[in-house]
Design a binder for these strands. Structure first.
Length: 425
RNA sequence: GUGGCUGUAGCUCAGGCGGUUAGAGCGCUAGGUUGUGGCCCUAGAGGUCGGGGGUUCGAGUCCCCUCAGCCACCCCA
């Protein structure tokens, strides 16, 4: 085995695909219940899309993008973020001309970031997310957080922590940023290396530094909440009222800062203890300037992204119920060449009757075929040999009870259709 | 990008201080019943000991490099 999958990527096999399908199906159902419609965009986008929206100086753009030139000399990038492509779609597909607001969701979107893999962090991961364009109403922010929780609860999860914060609009955030830089500049020499770098690059990030040497300066640091302009403060206040109406338990975290440039006002995260250091399963917020950055009219927006691989870690840690492997309705065991030929046509009619079925293709003994059927697992085994070919009646064995009976070959599809539908309830 | 730990069969792992043809359990295949699964019994297949280089009479074992996995930092879902 020479060629292996690239670092930080995962394969999916039939053994774990049913769990994944459950996550995806549930996401579609819940998003639909909230009035969101599904979108899809290419995995490839122009590099410029992310440079302009996510931000030139962010880690994502600076060192985590899979970018290359195609044969026509275009600078393309494997999407490292889903919100920017969604905004691009909103503009390009003229969704601004439809009835507003426009509520969109996506599931199973591959996202690429060139990072060092660790627990819950991959170079290719997959996201479920929603985006609502066109309304500044804090009730939408609340709805989106509530949607995420509905989804997580529907998967049977608990032990989730919702954290929210407001990072203000560009105006009040800039005031705050300058004050913060002024505050930390005095003690810059005492702070850790990372924070000295953050001071130049993204001062708000200093607030969630965990190093002891920085803690005392953090205590004295001014808080964003006292810098919010009247409109932003009112928006944040109303968001919290709506969350209470929706029975969403949350905590305000003034150190919560999202790393992407397009965020305004509301930012939030949902975390779970099973995830280790990378404990965020869902992150999102408001991006009122995003569409305008891409050349559209000023358009408010809110959304979140949820990491499906991380979600699966949580689901497994909580032993939440996942559907088991799909059963096969019928396995046809054949004895002899004539039966083998007859089985091929029997499968055809069973499948036309919506019965899932299979047969032996390795010329195996009856015993080996039975073992194979058992492992599938198959609900029924149909025994087809010389006796059955002569009588026109096939032996039907219920693999759970071990009971057998004879059924006319011509009517076995209907017989199984009835048996298997009642078995599933 | 930085640091720590780990790579032996498909999977989980044994292999004293370097010493002959590298083992177990599970899984897989076949048989035990020439037409009947699960449990049990028997047998078999499957390994360039992650890869490359070095030390040595001799390397799965020691050294270096590299790749990969896990974990943490940075940062993010």
């Amino acid at each position: 085995m020479n060629i292996r999958r690239p670092r930080g990527t995962e394969d999916m096999t039939p053994q774990n695909s049913t769990g994944w399908q459950h996550l995806v199906d549930t996401a579609r159902r819940v998003a639909g219940r909230f009035g969101y419609g599904e979108i899809r965009t290419p995995v490839l986008e122009h590099r410029e899309l992310f440079v302009r929206t996510v931000g030139e100086s962010t880690d994502i753009v600076e060192k985590e993008m899979y970018s290359f030139q195609d044969r026509g000399g275009r600078d393309l990038t494997l999407r490292p973020d889903a919100t920017a492509p969604a905004a691009r779609l909103y503009l390009q597909e003229n969704l601004f001309a439809e009835a507003q607001p426009v509520k969109l969701y996506y599931v199973n979107w591959p996202i690429f970031r060139y990072e060092r893999p660790q627990a819950g962090r991959l170079r290719q991961h997959h996201q479920f997310g929603v985006e609502c364009f066109g309304s500044p109403d804090p009730a939408v922010d609340a709805e989106i957080i509530s949607l995420a929780l509905h989804y997580l609860h529907e998967l049977g999860l608990s032990d989730l922590q919702v954290s929210i914060n407001s990072i203000g609009c560009p105006d009040c955030r800039e005031d705050y940023r300058q004050t913060l830089v002024g505050h930390f500049r005095e003690c810059e020499g005492e702070m850790c290396e990372d924070c000295r770098r953050r001071l130049r690059k993204n001062p708000l990030r200093i607030l969630d530094c965990k190093r002891d040497e920085c803690q005392k300066y953090l205590q004295e640091a001014p808080l964003m909440s006292s810098f919010l302009c009247d409109d932003c403060a009112a928006h944040f206040f109303q968001l919290q009222q709506y969350l209470q109406v929706l029975d969403v338990g949350y905590q305000c975290d003034s150190t919560l800062v999202r790393g992407l440039d397009y965020y305004t006002r509301t930012v939030f995260e949902i975390t779970h203890p099973a995830l280790g250091a990378k404990d965020v399963v869902c992150g999102g917020g408001r991006y009122d300037g995003l569409v305008e950055i891409l050349g559209g009219e000023p358009t408010p927006g809110v959304g979140f992204g949820m990491g499906l691989e991380r979600l699966l870690i949580i689901v497994e840690s909580e032993d939440a119920e996942l559907p088991g492997a799909d059963q096969l309705d019928a396995f046809v065991v054949t004895i002899g060449d004539a039966a083998h030929r007859e089985a091929v046509s029997l499968l055809k009619s069973l499948r036309e009757g919506k019965i899932s079925c299979d047969m032996d293709y390795l010329d195996r003994s009856v015993r080996a075929q039975m073992r194979y059927a058992d492992k599938y697992p198959a609900r029924f085994v149909l025994m087809l040999g010389d006796d059955e070919l002569q009588s026109g009646q096939i032996t039907v064995r219920n693999m759970q009870t071990g009971q057998q009976c004879m059924v006319d070959i011509d009517s076995v599809a209907e017989y199984l259709a009835e048996k298997t539908s009642s078995a599933c309830g």
